[in-house]
């Protein structure tokens, strides 16, 4: 399980964030010691850091610079300052992403997911059991057969794949689609999922996507 360190001085936000991360298959940890944040970071060895810009004792951007001197741990900056200049500055200090409060929790999860995805598969080809998935071509290959997916179906499938074994809500899928400039509505999502199921059936994975009533979908 991935450890995510939350550096945030507002306890209520930090706790909610921890719950959000814990419920999404990560392990959330909250930084306790703002006097020596680096020591705690060394101890915890997080896989990713959520760093608020406005933290006590030391400024978030300064801390980011210090972290970058020693580690390559991915960092997402979180801030209530809604300002393009800050964003550019943070990115230049080596932040991997930047998100402003009040953020949509689904978006935050998407960004975290995207960073981990980027780290894990440098090569773009994904795999599901004996299937080879080539997102750029919209192809799923199996030995000598292959099926073509539409852009929407591919977005849905790769998202489910990245969360394989976990329940994915319709809202998450919808947000990921919208994030990829596919502004579809509820009906279209249902249609896309049933088409995706049909296509998976064609290559022998009939019940790969299960519906969990009232919760969402799960790719087994």
């Amino acid at each position: 399980m991935k450890n995510i360190l939350i550096i945030e001085d507002d306890l209520s936000i930090a706790n909610e964030l921890k719950d959000l991360l814990d419920n999404s298959g990560y392990h959330g940890l909250i930084l306790q010691d703002f006097d020596n944040p680096l020591d705690e970071i060394v101890q915890i060895k997080p896989d990713l850091i959520l760093l608020d810009i406005n933290i006590p004792k030391i400024n978030g951007e300064l801390l980011l610079q210090k972290i970058r001197k020693q580690y390559t741990t991915p960092v997402i900056m979180v801030t209530s300052r809604n300002n393009e200049a800050d964003e550019v500055l943070s990115m230049s200090y080596g932040a991997d992403d930047y998100i402003t409060k009040p953020y949509n929790p689904t978006i935050l999860l998407l960004r975290i997911n995207a960073i981990f995805k980027r780290m894990e598969n440098k090569n773009d080809n994904l795999a599901y059991h004996d299937l080879k998935i080539i997102p750029q071509k919209g192809l799923i290959q199996k030995e000598n057969t292959e099926v073509l997916l539409t852009k929407n179906e591919m977005i849905i499938f790769t998202y489910l794949l990245s969360k394989q074994g976990n329940i994915v809500t319709r809202d998450e899928l919808m947000t990921d689609l919208w994030n990829n400039n596919e502004f579809i509505n509820d009906n279209a999502l249902t249609v896309n999922i049933s088409r995706l199921r049909t296509k998976l059936k064609e290559i022998g994975y009939e019940n790969a996507i299960e519906t969990r009533k009232g919760q969402g979908y799960i790719l087994l």
Binding site: N104, I107, M174, T175, W178, N179, N180, F183, N185
Partner: peptide, 20 residues
């Protein structure tokens, strides 16, 4: 897409079609 996601819930709720 950022603005669209911000307004996603209300757009879906009011059944407003968004064409980009």
């Amino acid at each position: 897409s950022n603005v669209a996601i911000q307004n996603k819930d209300i757009l879906l709720e009011k059944n407003i079609e968004l064409e980009v």
